[in-house]
Write a protein that binds this DNA or RNA. Structure first.
Length: 343
DNA sequence: CGTTTTTGACCTGCGC
DNA sequence: GCGCAGGTCAAAAACG
């Protein structure tokens, strides 16, 4: 399943039709709201720096059985809510992400309140400066307390869940691990990574769901200021498009990471998962023509029609590639349309 | 030898 | 004010 959340803090309001789900580890009361796929794709992209938009993409793909593995698109089926990957909020106390991924069941019931909560949060009495401070210390903390006053907008952040045996998803970018912390209420530690590119301050956190160890929650924060590096391994046929990508964090999949890892490739929505023995790609844009290996077609076969539906929706974003709309744009953009942009 | 990972310490925010 | 938890730093170790 895949959920994409976007919340527009900037305007202090949520667009009902676009807020698929709320997610924020900063915003109390995050939740999942009812939505339609079309809504998702019409959803305004996560704004860049200033918007503090948060997107959540929850993906699930089997690691062993490519054939029976639901594609990202399969997972994108509109309500009714698919089975949850994560247990009810109540069971996952403090881990924001888990809260977010909440059960669809709760979605409708809590949606409004959650939104309100979120809005409240947005409205919080904090002034811009105060918020800036808050944001800042998160990133600057120890190093330069002096700059405390300097504003620093929260980086766009989004997370996705991956059912994978591999912790660190190979997303095409190179990451350096700079920390690891035990997470409360979870037997699994959280790892902190930073993009190795000097000028790029993108970070990501990787942790396993305490409720379901097979689920890896990856949270990206920030926007890549450089193209996805082309890496020899794994990136295979995706590279061409990759190169064209010069935007944000969208890149998931491809080379960078280590071998034998899972890969997602959102920017162009090429989606690759490499695990132990199985490797397969999803090419949302080309459900049918999509190449790659063996069982690929099967990945789409069953839900082809629905996919069409999914991608056709209001297909709003006309030229996603032309402008950088932020993370979401990178992740769900043009490719989600019918525009079969081949590789 | 350069790069990445590990890991303990440190800093900050938040709740009580 | 105190303690806890999250996030980051940075030295040391590991790796290729």
């Amino acid at each position: 399943m895949l959920l994409i959340n976007s919340m527009e803090k900037e305007n202090n309001k949520l667009k009902p039709e676009t807020s698929a789900a709320l997610f924020s580890d900063q915003i109390p009361g995050s939740s999942i709201t009812n939505y339609s796929l079309s809504s998702i794709f019409d959803m305004p992209p996560c704004e860049t720096e200033k918007s503090s938009s948060l997107c959540l993409i929850e993906t699930m793909f089997a690691s062993h059985d490519p054939i029976n593995t639901p594609s990202i698109f399969d997972l994108l089926q509109p309500p009714p809510p698919p089975p949850l990957l994560i247990p009810p909020q109540s069971q996952v106390p403090k881990i924001p992400l888990s809260e977010i991924v909440n059960t669809p069941n709760n979605s409708s019931s809590i949606s409004s309140s959650s939104i309100e909560a979120a809005n409240d949060d947005q409205h919080t009495t904090k002034t811009v400066d105060q918020q800036a401070d808050d944001n800042q210390d998160k990133n600057k903390k120890q190093l330069k307390p002096k700059n405390k006053k300097q504003k620093r907008e929260r980086e766009p952040r989004f997370a996705f869940m991956t059912k994978s045996e591999v912790d660190h998803l190979d997303d095409g970018f190179r990451w350096r691990k700079y920390g690891q912390k035990a997470v409360k209420n979870s037997p699994f530690p959280r790892s902190y990574y930073r993009c190795t590119t000097a000028t790029c301050g993108v970070k990501k956190r990787v942790e396993r769901s305490s409720e379901d160890p097979s689920i890896v929650v990856t949270t990206y924060e920030g926007t890549h200021t450089h193209p996805c590096p082309i890496t020899p391994r794994g990136s295979i046929g995706i590279l061409p498009e990759t190169a064209g990508y010069s935007g944000s964090i969208g890149g998931l999949g491809g080379g960078g990471g280590g071998g034998g890892t899972s890969s997602l490739y959102f920017p162009q929505f090429h989606y690759q998962v490499q695990q132990q023995q199985s490797t397969y790609f999803h090419t949302p844009t080309l459900p049918r023509s999509f190449t790659s290996n063996t069982s690929d077609s099967s990945l789409f076969s069953t839900t082809n029609s629905s996919q069409e539906r999914m991608f056709s929706p209001s297909t709003s974003s006309s030229s996603p590639l032309a402008r950088d709309h932020g993370l979401l744009q990178d992740m769900v953009p043009s490719q989600m349309r019918n525009d079969p942009k081949e590789e």
